[in-house]
Design a protein around this nucleic acid. Structure first.
Lengths: 175, 175
DNA sequence: GCTCCTGTACCGTCCGGTCGGTACAGTAAA
DNA sequence: TTTACTGTACCGACCGGACGGTACAGGAGC
């Protein structure tokens, strides 16, 4: 799929050089395609960014789903696991995320993101041993994501592991 | 101070219409000044955004400081209080924040933000009753900020209050 | 020869920044 | 008190270039 390669190019550009580097010409060049070729697949720049956003949301959804075994409260745990995987994984995938989110400022582009946020944090926590704790755990994962993408060096591996263990414990505790 | 009024205009534009609406001409018009007048105070657009970022960081620092009474672990509590104040306060101040952060994507502009993040979350939690819990509490506040600015309607007042109480309790618990 | 795709030349717009100028307040020597 | 000069604040026309998007002319494979 050529679209995939184009999205890859756009992502690379975005995470390496920032928002203003995301021009149609640059993306086309990076993907080894002419501008016309790019515009054929994504008729407008907006469509390109929409593609970026959609893909990245799908990826995270899949990651969470992969960790969710369906047992009560598993979603909260899976959300934590997925977050740490993105944050500490080899690929440093969070770089792509923050870059894409920065590019999707306009309301129309941000809408899918907002909807995903609502899904991730709005998911009922009633099945969790302690619903409020579950919400807090998810929120902390979200916050960690935010902090790490701003200051990647702030937490060392040990601290991250301690945080993860504690979050999982917190989610499991019955109140 | 004229600069203040110019920053106000820029902020208003940003939170009402988004990043792409932040043009020199628009800011000048909004502030009732000519483009030349604006450029006199902020010689470049970058300087303008820097001013925006600096001001907003100062504001939050002041807010936290106002809640910090210096007792052990007070910082973590103050951070939570300040966050909820911004999130639930009349002014809906978080709108300004996210708009500004979106406008400050370029590394140079984001640097002060990153530095502030490091300060806020890197502050030692040794004095807290439970250091790891303190980190989690701060992170959850951060995450809540993020979630609320994406989906303001997700949590109702009751839920927000429950979260706040629980976060404060969590920060106070000795392990 | 028709469909799908690519390459390239080009257009119009918008935007950041420059620049020559105005208005005016202060001030200090004559 | 007049004059000459300086610094500050502000104005708005204009320029150069970048960028999104269009048009269109191929070309490969069926």
């Amino acid at each position: 799929m050529k679209k995939h390669a184009l999205l890859d190019a756009a992502e690379a550009l975005l995470s390496e050089q920032g928002t203003q580097a995301l021009t149609l010409t640059a993306v086309a060049d990076r993907a080894g395609v002419s501008k016309g070729g790019l515009l054929y697949h994504f008729p407008t720049k907006e469509a390109l960014v929409q593609g970026l956003v959609a893909r990245v949301i799908e990826e995270f959804d899949a990651l969470v789903a992969a960790h969710d075994d369906g047992t009560p409260g598993a979603y909260t745990r899976a959300y934590v696991e997925a977050t740490f995987e993105v944050l500490t994984g080899e690929a440093r995938a969070y770089r792509r995320w923050s870059a894409i989110m920065a590019a999707a400022t306009d309301p129309e582009l941000a809408a899918p993101l907002n909807e995903a946020m609502a899904r991730w944090h709005g998911r009922p926590a009633a099945a969790d041993p302690d619903p409020v704790a579950a919400m807090i755990v998810r929120l902390a994962a979200e916050g960690l994501w935010e902090v790490v993408s701003h200051t990647p060096e702030l937490y060392d591996a040990g601290q991250l592991d301690a945080l993860k263990q504690r979050l999982l414990a917190l989610a499991a505790e019955r109140r």
